[in-house]
Design a protein around this nucleic acid. Structure first.
Lengths: 121, 121
DNA sequence: TGTCTGTTTCGACAAACGTCGAGACAGCGT
DNA sequence: ACGCTGTCTCGACGTTTGTCGAAACAGACA
């Protein structure tokens, strides 16, 4: 099931200091994987699954796309280290990797000092 | 300087409920803009600038890329709503838009309930 | 063993992307 | 008015991406 290594760079916010080229090279592919609406929804369906995992057979029919296309997007998420896959009998189950999600969130977190204020308005 | 509208969708985490197609369509382009190492560094340099803004003339020499290429990446960041640009005399200054960064961070934030634990290890 | 279903791989194609050089535009200083 | 410098736009290029259909692989079940 060939899961790739998850990035191991760490954690200060984008806004605190300039992210070095090596860190950018490692983190950017994860953001790139999130940069497609289908993959964003796939990851969300996986990460929000009640049991912590979800079957490809539940993912595929949720989109107007062929099986191979969904499989391709799932592979992209896997190679970005965002999800893990496990085959159990006939079906393949995907689960999210919270550690890397947290890392990306931390990168994007804005120190509350810097104003201009309201999100969600 | 033609700044595009920033996404106005809001805020629950990826992991809480499935992100709807319309939200994904709006948010994915912002992640896509972050999905290139050069743009990630550009945004970081902009967002971490002491005065809150930084001149293109300070950005360009930090990379082994031509002016037009840097300009193209900056335009991508602008169109994704991640930064704002303002011309003052000869120079053009860029500043980050914290609201959308916060929104993206919120989307990626994992509810501490879901374990598997340690980031930054 | 054979066949059926679920999933992935392969090959192809059009569209989008990252990069460049050449040229255009905007202000400043003479 | 002219030229100089900083920035952006345009056109071109090779590469990567998203999608598909066809085919391969994996496990279940008769």
């Amino acid at each position: 099931m060939s899961n790739q290594a998850a990035p191991t760079v760490c954690c200060p916010s984008l806004t605190e200091r300039r992210v070095p080229a090596e860190a950018a090279a490692v983190l950017a592919p994860a953001f790139k994987a999130l940069g497609d609406p289908v993959r964003l929804q796939l990851l969300s369906m996986i990460a929000s699954a009640e049991s912590g995992e979800i079957c490809v057979c539940d993912l595929t029919p949720a989109f107007d796309l062929t099986g191979p296309t969904i499989s391709h997007h799932l592979r992209t998420l896997r190679e970005a280290g965002l999800v893990d896959a496990e085959r159990r009998g006939t079906w393949v189950y995907y689960r999210a990797r919270p550690a890397i999600l947290r890392q990306l969130a931390a990168l994007l977190t804005v120190t509350p000092a810097e104003a201009d204020g309201r999100d969600c308005s």
